[in-house]
Design a protein around this nucleic acid. Structure first.
Length: 673
RNA sequence: GGGAGCAUAGCUCAGCUGGUUCAGAGCAUCUGCCUUACAAGCAGAGGGUCACAGGUUCGAACCCUGUUGCUCCCA
C-alpha cells in the first residue's frame, strides 16, 4: 500500500498481511540508517482510507531488508507496535471490538467482521489507487487451541500482580538450596526466569473461574472488595456515590494459577485455621513436571514466603514427560495415550508401574514402550516364583535337620549383601534417583536373591530343609518385600500376607517400617566375588567342553595364598562337583582357568581337543601381553611417574605385577599341555 | 527474538571429584539348554571413533573453544 507524504507528491510504500489494521495506524516507522527514507524523518504520512496524518518515526526495530523496509505502526493490534508506541509516545487507536468486528474508532466498515474487511479494503484501496501490489505468501498465524479461531492481538485492560519485590525471596532460597531442585539443572532456568520476572497478568476472559473481586462505580473508579456490600461501603467511605444498581463487578476471572499458587496453604485451609498448617507446613517433597516450574512451582514458593514467611516445601522433584514412540507428548487431545486399564489387564498394575519407572530418569522424558511393561510383568512373575519356592520349603522343614555349610555361608552373605544394597538404596532415594533405586532393587532381587542365594540354599531334590535356613530365608524375603513395596505395592502386599500369619487389621506391609542397614561383611563380599568367578569358570568349562551338568567333576586348586575354603561347599553344590582338592603341583591333562594368584583345574573328560585348548590359552596370552604393554608404557613415561598421584601409580604397578603373574601361569600351562 | 539443556551399544539411559584393562546397566540380538520355583525362565556371547574439529593435561566420555544436530521454556 502507498501512503502519501504530507506537503509533497511523494509516496511511501508499506507491505502488510493485515491491511484492515490501517484503520488503527498511528505512525510509519523506518530504520534510522536507511538512506532511502532519511529525508522523510520528522515528516508526516497520510493513512489511506481514513486520511489521518501520522508521524514518520525512525527506530532500529525496523529491519531494512524486510519487506519495503518501512513499517506501519498499529499500537493497539500488534505487540511490537505497542512497544514502539510506548517508546515514541504514539496515539493508540483500538479499531476492533472484542468479537472481531470493526469498532467505531475504526471510522469505516464499522460492525463488519475483520476478515470481510480484509477483502473489502483491498478492493477499496485498489479503487483509490493506493494498492501497489497484492501477492500470496505464507506467514505464521496463531490459532486458539480450543476454538481454532485466528488470534488477533488487541489492546485491552488487564489486572497485573507486581512481581519485582514479591519474587526476591523465592529466587534467593532456591539459589542457596533451602529449597532443592532435582535435577539441579533446573535451577538455571529458574534463575533466569526469576531474574527477569515480568508482572503477572492475572485476569482472564473466560466464563468459568474465580471472578475478579474488583468493582467499578458509575464514574469509573474502582475498589477491591469481597462482596457487593463491602464494595458499596468502600466507595461510600471514599465519598463516591454507589449502590447496588450503579456499581458493577469486573467480568474477568482469575488466571487458574492464581488459586493454585496458594495450594500449599489452602490445602490445609491455612488462611483460616491453624491446627493442620502449623503441623504440616512446610512439607517435604513436591513432585511435578518441569513445564510448570514457572506457572506453579515458582509461584507457590513466592506465595509461601509472602503469606507464610516460610518455604512451602523442601525438595522439588521434576518428572519427565511421557512421550509416544514418535516423541510426541502423550495427551488426551492427541489421543496417543494407551489406556492404562488395558495395559494393567495385560501386565498387571505393578508391571505397568515398574515398566514406567524403569525408564524415567528425573528430568528426562520417557519414550513410552510397551515392552517396558512386559519387563515389569516378568519381574513380578519372578518374585512370585521366588516366593513359591521359599513357601514350598515350609512343609519340608525338619526341626532337627542341621544347616548345611553351604546354606550357612549363603545366609551370611545374603544378609550382608542386602545391607550393602540397602545403603545404596537409601542414598538413591536421598538424591531422588528413583529409577536407579528401582534398578538396584531389581538386581538385588533377581540377581543376588534369585540367581545366587536361592540356588545356594536350595536343598537337593528330596532333601529336607533345615529350620535355620528356612527362617532366615523368610526374613530376607520379607525385607526384600519392604524395599520392593514402593514400586510394586500390590504384589508385595499379597506375598506379605501369605508369607506369615498377620494380625487382623494391623498386618499390612504398608505399616511395616523401612529396614535399617545392618553390618556389612567386607571380607565375605570379597570371598563371594572370587567364588562367583570360580562358578562362572566351571560353568564355562562345562559349556565349552560339552560336559553335561549331571556329570560330576573334580576341581583342583593350586594357590600361592593359603587356601580359603569358605565357599567350597557352595561351589560343590552349584557346579555339581564331587570334590575340591588343593594341590601343590600343576596336574596334567586338565582344563583350567586362572584368577589372581590361583589356578583352577578340571580334569579332562572324554573327547579332549588339546589343540583347541592351546589356541584358547594362546589367545588369552596375546591379550594379556598387549595389556601389559600399555601399562608398562604408562609406567615408563617419566612425566606420568613424576606427576601422577601415589595411589594411581600404585594401582598401575599392581596391574603390572598381577598381569606378569598371570602370563607366567598361562605359559606354564601351555608348556604342560 | 531471549534463555536453558541434551548428543555415550540397535533402544532407553548410568558414568558423581579428570585416574582400576580404549567405557557400565537394563532391554533387544545371537548361541546353547524344557536342569523339579520360574521358557514370562536358565547358562553364555557379541555389540561403542563416547556427535564433529581443535585445545588444556602425565592422563579427557568428563574441563575449555568452535561447529553440527535435537529438545524444552519464555515473549
Amino acid at each position: 500500500m502507498r501512503y502519501a507524504i504530507v506537503g509533497s507528491d511523494e509516496f511511501i510504500t508499506i507491505a502488510t498481511t493485515r491491511p484492515e489494521t490501517i484503520l488503527g495506524d498511528t505512525a510509519v516507522c523506518v530504520n534510522p540508517k536507511d538512506e532511502r527514507y532519511k529525508h522523510l524523518h520528522g515528516k508526516k504520512a497520510i493513512v489511506p482510507m481514513v486520511n489521518r496524518e501520522v508521524p514518520i518515526i525512525a527506530d532500529d526495530y525496523v529491519e531494512m531488508e524486510f519487506g519495503t523496509g518501512c513499517l506501519k505502526v498499529t499500537p493497539a493490534h500488534d505487540m511490537n507496535d505497542f512497544m514502539l508506541g510506548e517508546k515514541h509516545g504514539l496515539e493508540v487507536i483500538n479499531m476492533m471490538n472484542d468479537n472481531g468486528t470493526i469498532s467505531e474508532a475504526g471510522q469505516l466498515y464499522i460492525g463488519m467482521d475483520r476478515f470481510e474487511v480484509r477483502t473489502k479494503i483491498a478492493e477499496d484501496l485498489t479503487a483509490s489507487g493506493n494498492l501497489v501490489k497484492a501477492e500470496d505468501l505464507i506467514n505464521k498465524v496463531g490459532f486458539s487451541e480450543r476454538s481454532d479461531a485466528v488470534v488477533e492481538p488487541r489492546l485491552s485492560l488487564q489486572w497485573f500482580v507486581d512481581m519485582k519485590e514479591l519474587s526476591k525471596p523465592a529466587l534467593d532460597h532456591v539459589m542457596n538450596e533451602d529449597i532443592k531442585f532435582f535435577p539441579s539443572k533446573f535451577k538455571n532456568s529458574y534463575r533466569n526466569w526469576m531474574e527477569n520476572i515480568k508482572d503477572w497478568c492475572i485476569s482472564r476472559q473466560l466464563w468459568w473461574g474465580h471472578r475478579i473481586p474488583a468493582w467499578y462505580s458509575a464514574d469509573g473508579s474502582f475498589v477491591v472488595a469481597k462482596t457487593q456490600e463491602e464494595a458499596i461501603r468502600e466507595f461510600q467511605s471514599k465519598g463516591i456515590a454507589a449502590d447496588a444498581t450503579s456499581i458493577r463487578q469486573d467480568e474477568d476471572v482469575l488466571d487458574t494459577w492464581f488459586s493454585s499458587w496458594l495450594w500449599p496453604i489452602s490445602v490445609f485451609d491455612g488462611f483460616y485455621k491453624k491446627e493442620e498448617i502449623d503441623y504440616y507446613y512446610p512439607t517435604n517433597d513436591l513432585v511435578t513436571a518441569p513445564e510448570i516450574m514457572f506457572f506453579w512451582v515458582a509461584r507457590m514458593i513466592i506465595a509461601g514466603y509472602e503469606y507464610k514467611g516460610d518455604l512451602p516445601f523442601r525438595n522439588v522433584y521434576y518428572t519427565g514427560i511421557v512421550r509416544d514412540k514418535q516423541g510426541r507428548k502423550m495427551s488426551k487431545s492427541l489421543g496417543n495415550s494407551p489406556d492404562p486399564i488395558d495395559l494393567m489387564k495385560i501386565y498387571g498394575a505393578d508391571g505397568v508401574r515398574v515398566g514406567m519407572l524403569l525408564s524415567s530418569p528425573a528430568g528426562n522424558d520417557l519414550l513410552f514402550d510397551e515392552s517396558l511393561c512386559e519387563q515389569g510383568r516378568n519381574f513380578a512373575n519372578k518374585i512370585w516364583n521366588a516366593f513359591r519356592l521359599v513357601n514350598s520349603w515350609e512343609s519340608k522343614v525338619q526341626p532337627d535337620a542341621a544347616q548345611s555349610p553351604a546354606a550357612a555361608v549363603a545366609v551370611r552373605w545374603m544378609q550382608s549383601r542386602f545391607n550393602t544394597v540397602l545403603t545404596q538404596l537409601n542414598d538413591d532415594y536421598e538424591k531422588f534417583r528413583i529409577n536407579e533405586a528401582l534398578m538396584n532393587t531389581y538386581k538385588l532381587v533377581w540377581d543376588d536373591f534369585c540367581a545366587w542365594y536361592l540356588e545356594m540354599v536350595k536343598p537337593p531334590f528330596g532333601s529336607a530343609m533345615d529350620k535355620t535356613t528356612y527362617e532366615a530365608s523368610v526374613e530376607i524375603l520379607e525385607n526384600l518385600l519392604k524395599v520392593l513395596h514402593p514400586f510394586m505395592p500390590f504384589l508385595t502386599e499379597e506375598i506379605w500376607q501369605f508369607l506369615r500369619p498377620r494380625e487382623e487389621g494391623k498386618g499390612s506391609i504398608c505399616l511395616a517400617t523401612w529396614p535399617t542397614p545392618g553390618a556389612i561383611d567386607e571380607q565375605l563380599t570379597k570371598q563371594f566375588d572370587t567364588f562367583s568367578e570360580v562358578v562362572i569358570g566351571v560353568r564355562n568349562i562345562r559349556k565349552d567342553k560339552n560336559i553335561p551338568n549331571k556329570e560330576k567333576v573334580k576341581l583342583l586348586v593350586k594357590t600361592s595364598a593359603s587356601a580359603d575354603t569358605t565357599f567350597d561347599a557352595v561351589v560343590m553344590h552349584l557346579c555339581n562337583i564331587e570334590s575340591i582338592e588343593y594341590v601343590d603341583d600343576k596336574p596334567g591333562s586338565c582344563y583350567s582357568f586362572v584368577m589372581t594368584g590361583t589356578e583352577y583345574f578340571v580334569p579332562f573328560t572324554a573327547n579332549v581337543d588339546v589343540e583347541a585348548e592351546r589356541a584358547k590359552i594362546q589367545q588369552e596370552l596375546t591379550y594379556l601381553q598387549g595389556f601389559l604393554k600399555s601399562v608398562e608404557s604408562k609406567l615408563n613415561n617419566e612425566r606420568f611417574v613424576s606427576k601422577a598421584p601415589a595411589d594411581v601409580l600404585e594401582v598401575e604397578r599392581k596391574k603390572q605385577s598381577d598381569t606378569l603373574a598371570k602370563i607366567h601361569m598361562l605359559e606354564e600351562q601351555l608348556a604342560s599341555l
